[in-house]
């Protein structure tokens, strides 16, 4: 089983931080960055594979296709089974959390900013354990 990390955020700086942090924490050596969620969808449908999971760090507030639309599209296209999603938020609204949990692909919430410690904790999540052991 293989996995690929996708960071989705409309802020280039945030993407830069994520890449660096993932490298440093050895969470992923080559995470992919997307400023546009539409491109992420295209990427997933092109590179999906039965023995691969996309681990997506998804920002909810984006101008074109936002995080919610993205998850909706993913489900519609039947691509959600290839994905594990972490919802990235700068502040967690309880109703947002409830809504996000209704998506099967969502396996967690990460409050910004992401840090080495947080990423190390995520490695221990049961869905991700196989990739890091």
């Amino acid at each position: 089983m293989d996995f690929e990390v996708l960071n989705v955020d409309d802020d280039k700086m945030v993407l830069f931080i994520h890449e660096k942090m993932m490298n440093h924490s050895e969470f992923s050596s080559s995470p992919k960055s997307f400023e546009d969620a539409n491109e992420t969808l295209t990427y997933i449908s092109e590179y999906k594979a039965e023995d691969k999971k996309f681990v997506i760090f998804l920002d909810l507030n984006m101008p074109k296709l936002d995080g919610w639309d993205f998850m909706e599209e993913l489900k519609k296209k039947g691509l959600d089974k290839y994905c594990y999603i972490f919802v990235m938020t700068s502040s967690i609204d309880p109703t947002d959390k409830e809504k996000a949990e209704s998506y099967a692909a969502v396996i967690g919430f990460v409050e910004k900013p992401i840090s080495v410690d947080k990423l190390n904790d995520l490695k221990k999540k049961k869905e991700l354990l196989p990739f890091f052991s």
Binding site: D11, M13, V14, I17, K20, M21, N23, H24, N61, S90, S91, E111, K112, P113, I114, S115, V116
Partner: peptide, 22 residues
């Protein structure tokens, strides 16, 4: 809570990155 938290978290992220020596 949101619009202020967003740049604040970015700054925290940058500082965190500076602290990693990477």
């Amino acid at each position: 809570s949101h619009e202020m938290r967003s740049p604040a978290s970015k700054i925290l992220g940058i500082i965190e990155l500076l602290n990693t020596d990477s």
